[in-house]
Simulated assay, not measured.
Amino acid sequence: MTLTATSFDWVRQLVHRESAIVLQPGKEYLVEARLLPMAQQRGLSGVSELVESVRSRPDAATTRRIVEALTTNETSWFRDGDPFTALTGTVLPQLVAARRPDERLQIWSAACSSGQEAYTVAMLLSDALPNAATRVSITATDLSRQMVERTRAGRFSQLEVNRGLPASMLVRHFTRAGNEWEIAPALRRMITASECNLAAPLPRMGPFDVVYLRNVLIYFDLPTKQAILGRVRQLMRPDGWLFLGAAETTLGVDENWERVVLGRGSAYRPRKGA
């Protein structure tokens, strides 16, 4: 049974209402692919039948699973490279020089997915700072409860560690745990993972020295992008650094940010007085 237009519209509205993510027409294939396993688990003929069953008998747990299934959890170690090179080459030296030795550096990995970004940062800072375990605090958040739990666990399959993780770092920071690899406890203790909907009022966090908000804004409409950038700025230090995805920018969206070129990439800093 193919996905009907009515079912697709219902899913679009649900996802936008719960997460502000915009599913454009033409994304029917994505809805089919992400929700078909859920329909099959229930012995249903297809996604439209799943949608109709939820519409007729509303179920908070199932609607949450639908929304989480349609939030993109694509990630890898050192994804895109440049934002991590900039962290250790430019950002970290400036922050260390500007902060007291006893002052904790706070970093936020927003939309952390299963934790690769947050643990990439933890490994880099552990290697760069002798006292990173006590000097650095990393907050990892995601809309998906499942992704938050995976981040807390710090366990990854062989396939996952093969996606961008240098062998030297695997040996140095991971141990075997059955068929999986487990991140070192010291690095796991650097990270606090929790659920967070970026499109809703944010919890009290920070203030952050560095925010990784990468490959997230592309899924929102302009007003939502502006609202998210405004809320994120309120949680940052005046001299903090914001990293976006390679296809994302604050230009033409929120002029309260200053773009700074860092090597082959760029970052954004709050404008003074913003």
Rank of each mutant, 00 (worst) to 15 (best):
V96Q: 12
W108A: 02
N197I: 10
P37F: 15
R64H: 07
Q116Y: 00
R145D: 04
A110R: 08
T224C: 12
Y119Q: 01
R150E: 00
L95W: 08
Q94W: 12
A227D: 15
A227R: 15
K27L: 12
A247M: 11
G265R: 14
M169D: 06
W257A: 10
T134M: 05
R145Q: 14
A200V: 11
Y119R: 02
Q116N: 08
L262D: 01
E68Q: 10
Q24G: 07
S48L: 04
A267R: 01
R233Q: 11
P101R: 13
A200K: 15
Q40A: 13
V96R: 13
F78H: 04
R99N: 08
Y219E: 15
S114Q: 09
A122T: 14
P270E: 05
M147V: 04
Q40M: 14
G89F: 02
S56F: 05
A69W: 14
M169P: 03
V47P: 13
A5Y: 01
A97T: 06
L165K: 06
S113H: 04
L92P: 00
A98M: 04
A111F: 04
H16C: 01
V210R: 11
F208V: 02
L95G: 01
T2N: 13
G263K: 07
E255M: 12
A184Y: 01
G89P: 02
S76R: 04
R42L: 10
P166R: 10
I21P: 06
A132Y: 10
I66G: 06
Y119C: 00
E52T: 12
A186K: 14
V51L: 05
R204P: 00
E68N: 05
V216W: 00
W10Y: 15
A199G: 12
E52D: 14
A39F: 13
V51M: 12
L222M: 15
V54P: 02
V121E: 03
R99A: 11
V54A: 06
D209P: 07
T192D: 12
A33K: 11
Q41K: 14
T249L: 05
S53M: 13
V91Q: 07
R163K: 11
P203E: 14
N162K: 15
V148H: 10
P25R: 03
E160D: 04
T2C: 07
D254K: 01
P270W: 10
T134E: 15
K272P: 01
A167Q: 14
V171C: 13
I191N: 06
A128V: 03
R204F: 05
A193M: 00
L30C: 10
P58K: 07
A60S: 13
T6G: 04
S157K: 08
M169V: 04
Q41I: 14
A39N: 13
L159H: 08
R163Y: 07
D239M: 08
L14S: 03
